[in-house]
């Protein structure tokens, strides 16, 4: 049943779909914020898997697309607040790229809510918990990625 935190613990088992969400976060703000959430024992659903990079500026749009191509149901990119980037302006540049990814997703028919960029600072542990909870909720509502579905159909054929 529901644990402390604003989400239910789902049933798991063979045949039950679990969202696969790829998180790519920057070392200085969001990764530190996620650690802070840990220190504060802020509870959130476990469906996001994190890859750490030094700065969101490092994130090539292709990384996001690769994750979707690999069958991710959602992708979360999270970095510093604007003006707070450890490397001055990496997050601005990342944000521009990520807008491009969103446009691209729309144009190829993938719901762009599957991809999100957020800004969580090193002192926002509680916000990190809320962000993850919300991302997982959104992906749960959207269901499995259409790419995975198509691939399954192709395999059946």
């Amino acid at each position: 049943m529901s644990a402390p935190g604003n989400f239910p613990i789902p049933k798991r088992g063979p045949g039950i779909w679990q969202p696969k969400i790829q998180g790519i976060v920057c070392n200085w703000c969001s990764y530190a914020g996620a650690d802070l959430a840990g220190g504060g024992r802020i509870q959130y659903p476990p469906d996001v898997r994190i890859v750490r990079v030094m700065c969101t500026g490092r994130i090539d749009a292709l990384f996001v697309l690769k994750a979707f191509a690999d069958g991710a149901d959602g992708v979360l990119v999270s970095g510093c607040h604007f003006g707070d980037c450890h490397y001055l302006e990496g997050n601005f540049k990342a944000a521009k790229r990520m807008f491009m990814v969103k446009r691209l997703m729309k144009s190829i028919g993938i719901d762009d809510r599957r991809f999100r960029m957020t800004f969580v600072s090193a002192s926002e542990g509680a916000k990190w918990g809320a962000v993850i909870t919300d991302v997982v909720k959104t992906i749960n509502e959207l269901g499995p990625s259409p790419i995975t579905e198509i691939r399954k159909e192709m395999e059946i054929k």
Binding site: A3, P4, I9, R12, Q18, A34, D35, A37, G38, G39, R41, I42, Q43, Y44, P45, P46, D47, R49, I50, G129
Partner: peptide, 18 residues
């Protein structure tokens, strides 16, 4: 730990998978 066992304390299965 910080991004798993501490934040999924009541979800043993989920945290093991993660």
């Amino acid at each position: 730990r910080d991004q798993n066992s501490w934040v999924h304390m009541h979800d043993r299965e989920g945290s093991t998978d993660k």
